[in-house]
Write a protein that binds this DNA or RNA. Structure first.
Lengths: 368, 368
DNA sequence: ATTTTCTTCGTAAACGTTTCCGATTTCCTG
DNA sequence: CAGGAAATCGGAAACGTTTACGAAGAAAAT
């Protein structure tokens, strides 16, 4: 849109005698490597790519020289010719994350993904859509440019146009998070049903009859799943879920604080609460303390997820543990299974998995 | 709502059943766009790139058709020809971050960077070096492939080979964090001198005479700077820094907890502590509470940085605030100033900036 | 000894884009 | 109206890589 700088008028630096094309004139390409070895570039390429029709001794020399000269194939040339980039993009939005504590969450997932990709010379890059750009437009732009061979999308919304777009274009992709949009695509999602069921069951088993639940305020899909399961689980115990027991909050500390304030102000407080938003527990604790109430004693709390700070809350938070590294690995493998070049190695079919969680006992869900 | 579906009314009789080519056979390239408009591809390219020598009406038609067909220039072809990619990489390590709470820290910085890049059609991608790969090797590989035009490197070590490598190769880059390695390169770093000076001065002004400091345990450069400044500031007040008052910890909650335990066990405890590692405060608080001590009352605490949870600690943490969005913008602008294509627009010279922090008063550094 | 097969390598054509260089037309100037 | 400048466009050559194809020689088979 910023149609080219008009500084083109008179450029005094137009005739530089030793202007060597690009800034990186000393980049060593396959050409240099070939003439250094005095063989053709075709042979060099075949040697590097492990083609069978190249002499063993020649291959050895090529590999050695490549290492010595620090040669690595140019990304643009290679992917232009091959039609694939060897890059997989993980798309994230700047502001909203799947949970509040994006840091350790995504870092662990990334690490798992990379562990698998490393075996196939695939590279993972993170594509982050800025807060000023529409996620759908960002995705279309990225895809049209042919930047990556495949995509992992996160923060899936209940109705997510990205899914239809990618499926329509036959771009290999996998979603971290379910969606109403169903294109027969692979996805992996956290077990929010399990969370709701186990959490409610546990609180009921401890004698609670007035249980509140706290779900995200936005359009994320997990909210609906969580709420519905919690509701039906409560119903299974013959318990209702009155409207004022269903709280909504943004997935951060401030949201938790606000919720605590709301509960504190109630004339008849619930005796327990199940939080699905991450890091809300931190604010929730604080909100209780500020009102002179104590988590665990005055109101039982089960939170999500076992974050680094969970065990440093007072009392330690009872919450759910996820193996995020393994989740990343599963994500990568399921994605590879949809990519033509790797299908045979990962004959898995399209994955639709619910990723399990494990309850970690703290002391926030029972009186001390 | 993918704008304008694939209503290919134009060339319906293109039935090539077994024309395979690439997976994305229906990608619309400049060629298709050109023959759809019945003009040459050269003209289409010039029109899209804002070249002056193209008729206004022609340009309008081209832009319209490009939008309609969802055309976006192929990344590989474009960067192969231009010798530049339009992509800037932000390199991060999987495990170690500049601070413990990488999430909100980097997300804010990214958003600032992107705000500037968006004005120049530059894209930011995050390159994360997995925990299994050597950062220096990863960088070399990435550079050799010509993946990005410029780089932002973070988590700079005290002695960082990446800096010499990039400078030697004339790759435009900027470092987030100082280093002993000086290649006359641009960098921006947080004001750890200011943090040490203001923190110590404040604690001394409140009457403390026995002040401990807590620095990171790793090779990060900030540790040295922080420790030296703290030491000299203390000396300026005529106060020593005995070896047992200099604590080291990993930058996370557990590290803070361990430090608290160590301090609690001391026969003569310091009366105040200045923490430079992020999120250590959370664990530190907990460590004190577990020993029956209260932050602020029994030991004064000044922490770093004003993270989302800082104000939800009890008592709220006195700490330092950073404008990370602006830091990202500064980072981007300083980087652009080193890139040949943007030099004239950002005539800044090579930046070496210390990014200021502002003290936020909590109640953790004085008795209630 | 002749043919066949196998091994190894060089040649050249793509991939999609930008941009230099002319060619053609239009417009202005004298 | 001649002539030149300006406007507008098409043609074609790159960019670095992979790979189909074929050539040349060596080895094997007849």
């Amino acid at each position: 849109m910023p149609s080219a700088g008009p500084t083109e008028g008179i450029s005094p630096t137009h005739n530089r005698p030793n202007e060597k094309r690009h800034a990186a004139e000393d980049m060593v390409g396959i050409k240099r490597l070939a003439q250094h070895l005095d063989i053709s570039i075709g042979t060099v390429s075949r040697a590097l790519n492990g083609r069978p029709d190249v002499n063993a001794e020649t291959r050895r020399r090529v590999l050695e020289a490549a290492l010595e000269l620090g040669y690595a194939p140019n990304q643009a040339g290679r992917s232009l010719r091959k039609g694939s980039t060897g890059v997989v993009g993980f798309m994230m939005q700047s502001g909203s994350e799947i949970t509040g504590d994006g840091d350790t969450f995504f870092m662990s997932v990334f690490d798992g993904v990379q562990a698998v990709f490393a075996r196939h010379n695939l590279d993972l890059v993170v594509l982050l859509c800025s807060s000023r750009e529409d996620p759908d437009a960002y995705l279309r732009r990225t895809v049209a440019r042919g930047f990556a061979d495949a995509l992992i999308i996160s923060a899936t919304r209940r109705n997510d146009p990205r899914i239809d777009f990618l499926a329509e274009r036959h771009i290999p992709f996998i979603a971290l998070g379910r969606s109403q949009s169903d294109a027969g695509h692979p996805w992996i999602d956290l077990d929010f049903e399990g969370l709701a069921r186990i959490g409610i069951d546990r609180l009921v088993a401890q004698g609670h009859r007035d249980i509140a639940i706290a779900a995200p305020a936005d359009d994320a899909n997990l909210g609906h799943i969580f709420v519905e399961t919690a509701q039906s689980t409560l119903a299974g115990h013959g318990l209702p879920l009155p409207p004022d027991r269903l709280l909504r909050s943004p997935p951060n500390e401030a949201g938790g604080y606000a919720m605590a304030q709301k509960i504190v102000a109630m004339s008849d407080r619930p005796t327990a609460i199940l939080l699905v938003n991450e890091t809300t527990a931190v604010g929730f604790y604080r909100g209780l303390y500020d009102a002179g109430l104590a988590p665990g004693r005055d109101i039982a709390i089960i939170g999500f997820r076992e974050s680094p700070q969970a065990k440093f809350l007072s009392p330690p938070l009872t919450c759910f543990r996820l193996d995020l590294h393994a989740l990343g690995e599963a994500l990568a493998e399921a994605l590879l299974a949809t990519m033509p070049a790797y299908k045979e190695q990962y004959p898995l079919g399209t994955a639709r998995r619910i990723w399990p969680m494990e309850l970690v006992e703290g002391r926030s869900d029972r009186a001390q």
